[in-house]
Design a binder for these strands. Structure first.
Length: 361
DNA sequence: AAGTAATGCAACCGCATACAT
DNA sequence: TATGTATGCGGTTGCATTACT
């Protein structure tokens, strides 16, 4: 493509993009360029919105040690599914998570090659020392395995990751197989196809390497009939994840069943049974409020006046939040006059959205 | 204070997928 | 069904800032 601007965004461009989203919602990115509003590709506009302009982002706030550890755990379960992992971190983007992981990878790789004079448990970083092998001493496989076993779980993950990282780039002996799973870590049995589980339950139920993940319950802390000043629904998803410490049995998988519609087949992949998410991302506030509550076993529903808390974390996007605050209202009386290939300036009516939703189920 | 290395992060690219025609 | 388009995602790069020597 020629004629498209690249590089850093100016404040003016941001303002134009924000204005577009305020008017049309976070859609029809290509139309921004085709209308001549910005000399940016639709992809570039979308990326800018998602990563920098979207409301609710944690700008300039580094990942906490707890968050970083959680990223490691989730990466072990999901692999490099950054968008999915980012769902557990409100205000974080997949790019944030990806960058964190990349930084960590480089740090571990460097430390693997270049050790410090001694190994100290009080080293910097989230999980203590990350240097494990002197550069000029290639340990035997047995030595490596004993080291890995000796380390705590996090360091084991690190070590495994290091081995994996070098597997295809150097002659460093490799311990682990092709997966990102650390060695000698048992995987919890799964009761159902992983993709069928709601994101937060995938986290709570998931194959695990730490107590966080091996204590599979969606029951929040402080729910042993004890009053809590903070309702679980108001806890951020990642906190729900971190706080899940009960040894309760694994809850049954949630059934996503809109009123007066057929049940979704249990064999349906998760991505296939959440079509209303697309709907939720779309226009009408009224329509959003009519979306059926998802009943997730073990997760207490909030009051009917606060339907947002009933929605899965995946759906709780900052944009969605702002919809409820009436900060973003679509202008349905703004038809496209410039011949965009998609109805970029003609947002769907409520009837259209309703029909789409019913069709999706 | 200056040079260098390390780090963080914004943004681009290519590919995959969903959807409309 | 085939094709084109829009969007989303993961990998990667390059630059600015910070830390270190």
């Amino acid at each position: 493509m020629e004629g498209f601007k690249k590089g850093p965004w100016s404040k003016e461009e941001d303002a134009i993009l924000l204005d577009w989203v305020a008017t049309h919602g976070p859609h029809y990115w290509s139309c921004i360029q085709s209308k001549g509003l910005l000399m940016r590709t639709g992809k570039s506009c979308r990326l800018r919105w998602v990563n920098k302009l979207r409301p609710g982002l944690k700008k300039g706030r580094k990942f906490s040690p707890e968050e970083e550890e959680m990223v490691v755990q989730l990466q072990a379960d999901f692999g490099n599914k950054w968008a999915r992992i980012a769902e557990f971190f409100p205000g974080r983007t997949d790019n944030d998570v990806k960058n964190l992981w990349s930084t960590r990878k480089k740090r571990l790789a460097r430390n693997y090659r270049s050790p410090l004079p001694s190994i100290s448990k009080s080293g910097t970083g989230v999980h203590g020392p990350e240097q494990v092998v002197p550069p000029n001493e290639t340990p035997t496989e047995d030595q490596q395995q004993s080291e890995a076993i000796a380390f705590d779980h996090q360091e084991t993950i690190d070590l495994a990751y290091i081995h994996q990282s070098f597997a295809d780039t150097s002659a460093t002996p490799v311990l682990t197989g092709p997966t990102s799973k650390p060695p000698n870590i048992k995987t919890a049995p799964s009761l159902a196809p992983f993709d069928n589980v709601m994101p937060h339950q995938q986290c709570l139920n998931g194959a695990s390497v730490t107590p966080v993940l091996t204590l599979p319950t969606s029951k929040p802390p402080n729910t042993n009939n004890e009053p809590s000043s903070v309702p679980f629904d108001s806890v951020m998803p990642h906190q729900q994840y971190l706080h899940a410490t009960s040894t309760s049995p694994v809850p049954t998988l949630p059934t996503i069943k809109p009123p007066d519609t057929k049940s979704v087949p249990s064999s349906a992949p998760f991505d296939d049974v959440m079509p209303h998410q697309k709907f939720l991302n779309c226009a009408s506030v009224t329509a959003v409020l009519t979306v059926p509550t998802l009943n997730v076993p073990g997760i207490k529903s909030g009051p009917s006046s606060a339907p947002f808390n009933n929605v899965t974390p995946q759906i709780q996007s900052p944009f969605f939040d702002r919809l409820f605050e009436n900060e973003l209202v679509y202008n349905e009386s703004d038809p496209c006059l410039l011949g965009c290939s998609r109805p970029c300036c003609a947002p769907p009516t409520f009837d259209d959205l309703t029909a789409d939703m019913l069709k999706s189920f």
